[in-house]
Design a protein around this nucleic acid. Structure first.
Lengths: 198, 198
DNA sequence: ATGATTAGAACGATCGTTCGATCTAATCAT
DNA sequence: ATGATTAGATCGAACGATCGTTCTAATCAT
């Protein structure tokens, strides 16, 4: 997740992620990060300029990771349906395999603690843009109803996020079948004619 | 929103809500709450046992308010479609009229800062249960596909939440037409046959 | 030997909380 | 009716703890 950083930075970022998810931001003190990560406070400040800097670096790294994960194995040569299923499957896989990173972005993407600059970089490296293009294409080809692609993407994303939240809270067993069904729901919501068109 | 509390408690709760949404929990100190609310710190501790207590009281009050708001004007005599539209319209109206309370619940419903006890009370006073019953009925009557109602409710809720988030971030103009279209998306996602059945 | 890293003391600031003093208004005794 | 008494509302200074951050001096790795 943090391959682009050195060992010390990795230890700090990984520790911070775990602590913030388990204990909240306010309970995640620098001294605790130092103790758990095994990096002295002095050395942390050698690699990060402040606590805010750690959180923002964490945010940017996870956004980048999540973006690549969701967009992996995407091939524009495939049908819209195939691409559609792939991207939402990827998101579900991400939420299951990396729940802490996923939850961190969910919790902090609207937080004042994250600099606007970080949010801009997040948009640049994220998957929102590419996905909106796919939806736009689907509209133009008459597969999807003619409405704002941004709105559809956001609503579908919300659906999957809450599906994953239910899963993380043990309210729901998120099997492959359930995931497929969820993606079919999203598909049915916006297509001109109901049913998988293949 | 906080009619069940006295004036001092109301001032504290309202101030805390605004500060937490604008500045984060960690930047919302007791002294700041005191200064902005016009209630001295000593007096705050006369009415609340701790900062955690304030946050949890806030949480419970807003959950209760939101629950009543979303469930207002619901009539079981109406058709499933009518009830379906009403409840999601109510949620959208809530998100537009009371964005801070809405965001607070979104941000803190998974937070360790909220006691399990508060979350239990939230479920009791919330609208999740009643809505799942409506979905269950829709399944039994063959209107919805035969799948876990909880999953459908969660996904629909997620859709609307992200629709509202887009609106709050000025990414989307949430007119009545857009709201109607969004609810139609949710409906189409789970019905046996596509289209409003009236 | 040199730069990286350590542990942890020290800093001022601020945190959540406490506490005794003061104010208010209702109740009591006469 | 009036002064004494009282319960509780309100205040803000003060407390000890902890925060993020800096600094020092010792130790480690190469």
């Amino acid at each position: 997740m943090f391959e682009q950083y050195n060992k010390v930075q990795q230890a700090v970022l990984e520790t911070t992620l775990h602590l913030i998810i388990d204990k909240e931001l306010q309970a995640t003190s620098m001294s605790l990060i130092a103790k758990v990560s095994g990096v002295s406070t002095g050395n942390i400040y050698h690699y990060f300029s402040s606590k805010e800097d750690i959180i923002n670096e964490l945010y940017k790294a996870i956004v980048r990771f999540n973006g690549e994960f969701v967009m992996k194995d995407m091939n524009k040569a495939n049908s819209i349906l195939t691409q559609f299923r792939k991207v939402w499957r990827n998101l579900i896989e991400l939420g299951i395999k990396y729940p802490k990173g996923f939850r961190f972005i969910e919790q902090y993407s609207f937080s004042p603690y994250i600099y606007e600059q970080s949010k801009l970089e997040a948009y640049r490296d994220g998957w929102c843009g590419p996905l909106e293009k796919l939806y736009q294409q689907a509209i133009e080809e008459g597969v999807f109803v003619r409405l704002q692609p941004q709105m559809m993407v956001q609503m579908h994303y919300g659906s999957i996020v809450y599906l994953l939240k239910s899963h993380q809270q043990d309210m729901l067993e998120l099997t492959d079948d359930v995931a497929d069904q969820a993606i079919l729901f999203c598909w049915n919501a916006v297509i001109q004619e109901k049913g998988w068109n293949d």
